[in-house]
């Protein structure tokens, strides 16, 4: 029964991240919402492996963390260059990166 609380919490965190991507216009906040979704995935994976499955979760967790780190690195570089080129951070106004 306790597992269901963790699953519900991870679903809530995932839903907040998904809602944030859909409702936010700021480039960085959208990127942080993706990190929130990956956090929810990590929590759900640990919950399900602890309460249900047998075997090792290490590779799955390392994959999730690698995806989060890689995406953060790429987005931070983009953010830095967008700020340097005075590109608007409003994602609804983005058309070409070169603007």
């Amino acid at each position: 029964m306790f597992a269901l609380y963790f699953v519900a919490l991870s679903m809530a965190i995932f839903a907040i991240g998904a809602g944030g991507i859909a409702s936010s216009r700021h480039f960085l906040i959208t990127a942080l919402s993706i990190e929130v979704m990956l956090l929810a995935s990590t929590l759900l994976a640990v919950t399900l492996f602890y309460y249900g499955a047998a075997g090792s979760i290490t590779l799955l967790l390392l994959s999730l963390w690698s995806v989060a780190a890689t995406e953060t690195m790429a987005l931070m570089v983009l953010y830095r260059y967008m700020a340097g080129w005075k590109v608007s951070m409003d994602v609804t106004k983005l058309s070409k990166l070169r603007h």
Partner: peptide
């Protein structure tokens, strides 16, 4: 945000 998060 609130509506979408609840819907998701």
């Amino acid at each position: 945000l609130a509506v979408l998060a609840l819907a998701f």
